[in-house]
């Protein structure tokens, strides 16, 4: 069992930290996997061109450097921290008209993908490389038509949880949407598979994962928090295998408290053996 953040931006787009700094930050916190997903913007729109002019997007010119640095840093991350680094991109269509904006994460990619095609073609281009296509909340309104093209949906990003996506029954993951160190405390995903790139991609496809809200503390100890999985949290959301919300309740653990959604906290002792009702970002304990 390990913690992963699969949506991270570096200096190759709009992130504040260089890839080695990100590796050291997550590695030192005990994470088992991260994915670098720098923006790869459309090249034929004004906003895409502006991103290229300001070095805020991957381009065909810098993509080989990006991949090479990821390759060498993945080797270092494994040697130093036993942490997997997945190469990824965030195919980005920005528009001043919000409903035209679209973002798809590609995890495990190996080749450059032009972001100019429509989202269905982009998802197919990602999957054609054996990578995993993850839709962000920007594509919420197209979830029905995209359902068969997408491996998972980003239900939570940063500190934000999409209740609509959570309750949609679609396959899901949670990510940090990391741009700088202050974004470390955010939603993450817990995996139960082997620490291997292919195993992680398969776990996303098979949904062998849990959503987790990570809270950075001065004395934070990820493994201690994750020990609470032994209390039965993995196989159910209330400690007994019951499933109040479509099988994947967002849980997070901080200190002696369990957070549900992004606001409510519970004492874990009080949590054991009781049912939980979740509505949006709030939750209440029910009498067993």
């Amino acid at each position: 069992m390990f913690l992963a953040d699969l949506h991270i931006h570096s200096t190759f787009s709009d992130g504040k930290l260089a890839i080695p700094e990100i590796v050291d930050l997550y590695g030192s916190k005990g994470f088992g996997a991260i994915a670098l997903t720098d923006h790869l913007c459309e090249s034929n729109t004004l906003m895409g061109k502006a991103a290229a002019y300001m070095n805020r997007t991957l381009t065909p010119a810098v993509f080989p450097l990006y991949m090479e640095i990821l390759r060498t840093e993945a080797a270092r991350a494994w040697d130093q921290y036993k942490m997997v680094v997945l190469p990824g991109i965030e195919l980005t269509k920005n528009s001043v008209i919000n409903h035209r904006s679209a973002r798809i994460l590609g995890l495990g990619i190996s080749k450059y993908i032009e972001a100019d095609a429509d989202v269905v073609q982009l998802a197919r281009a990602i999957r054609a490389q054996g990578a995993v296509a993850i839709a962000t909340e920007t594509l919420l309104s197209k979830r029905t038509e995209l359902a068969s093209e997408i491996d998972a949906w980003e239900v939570a990003c940063g500190k934000k949880l999409s209740v609509e996506l959570l309750e949609s029954g679609l396959p899901k993951i949670a990510t940090g949407g990391f741009h700088s160190a202050k974004h470390l405390s955010s939603w993450k995903t817990v995996f139960f598979c082997e620490r291997h790139p292919q195993a992680i991609l398969d776990a996303i496809r098979n949904q062998d994962l849990k959503l987790f809200q990570y809270q950075e503390e001065s004395s934070h100890d990820v493994s201690k928090h994750l020990d609470l999985g032994g209390m039965g949290l993995r196989n159910g959301t209330d400690g007994r295998g019951n499933d109040p919300v479509h099988g994947a309740l967002p849980l997070s653990v901080t200190g002696s408290k369990i957070l549900v959604g992004s606001g409510t906290s519970f004492d874990p002792q009080a949590f054991e053996g009781r049912r939980l009702r979740v509505a949006g970002e709030s939750a209440e304990l029910l009498q067993s």
């Binding site: 890839i19 080695p20 010119a61 450097l65 640095i69």
Partner: peptide, 18 residues
């Protein structure tokens, strides 16, 4: 593949956090 291999060397080093 770059004309300004020196400028890009600087960019690459910056992406390494150096």
């Amino acid at each position: 593949k770059f004309l300004a291999e020196d400028f890009m060397a600087g960019q690459a080093m910056m992406h390494l956090g150096l």
